[in-house]
Simulated scan of single mutants.
Amino acid sequence: MKADLLSYLKGGRESLLWKLDGLGEYDIRRPLTPTATNLLGLVKHSATMEILYFGVVFGRPFEQELPYVGAGAETNADMWASADETREEIVALYERAIAHADTTIEALALHDVGHVPWWGDAAVTLHHVLVHVIAETQRHAGHADIVRELIDGTAGLLPRHDNLPPVDESWWRDHRRRVEQAALDASRGSS
């Protein structure tokens, strides 16, 4: 069971990192939603979550303190990268966070208990934390998929398995027009 859970977590991690491939600094950082969702920020946030959930929760400190976490930290500072934070640093942080998390997952049994300070010191099992972090990682991988599609049209699950129908660009244009027309027709019918 632990291997199955870890497989889903690894898939989300891989998908999230893939969304950075081939893009310049501006595109990986630019906010594309009203809440400033951006690709590099999603990676930074995911690194932070793995460090907290698989480190702090189980009393397994990470090698580095994160200045954008905890009391006095700027709100939402883990969701974007400042100009002096490089892509390489953030990706390396995520890779180290993953290694740290995987060590915790390997060392503990699914029924082992940790405590989540930001949930009122709630007692949780490794199983609970794994499911929570899988859900968060896959959610953010989905955000990254949409953001990347807005940037350059690249979409899909993983680089070697995009999970999209094998159709060409003209099919997608026609499909989008049909979906838009259905939305317009439905909105007129409900007025």
Score class of each variant (00 low, 15 high):
D84M: 10
F54E: 01
W80C: 06
L110P: 07
D162M: 07
L39Y: 07
A123M: 09
P165V: 11
V129M: 08
F62M: 03
A97H: 03
A77K: 09
K2G: 02
Y94G: 00
P166H: 11
I90V: 07
T48V: 08
D78P: 02
V57W: 00
P166F: 09
E65K: 14
T33Y: 07
W80P: 00
V113K: 10
L157N: 12
D78Q: 12
D174K: 14
W18P: 02
I90T: 08
L126T: 05
G41Q: 03
I28S: 03
R30A: 08
T103P: 00
R176S: 02
P159K: 15
A71T: 15
T48K: 01
R29G: 13
K19S: 03
V124M: 09
R87I: 05
G142M: 04
R13S: 07
H115Y: 08
L158P: 04
K19E: 00
I151S: 02
E65V: 08
L23F: 14
P165A: 12
D102F: 00
H128A: 12
M1W: 13
A83G: 13
R87K: 14
M49W: 05
A77E: 12
I28Y: 00
V167I: 10
Y26D: 11
F58R: 08
G41I: 01
G72S: 08
F58K: 01
V91Q: 11
E25Y: 02
T33I: 06
R60M: 15
G156D: 02
E50C: 06
A3P: 05
I146M: 11
W172M: 07
G120R: 07
P117K: 11
H140T: 06
L40Y: 04
I151Q: 02
N76I: 03
A107C: 04
L42V: 03
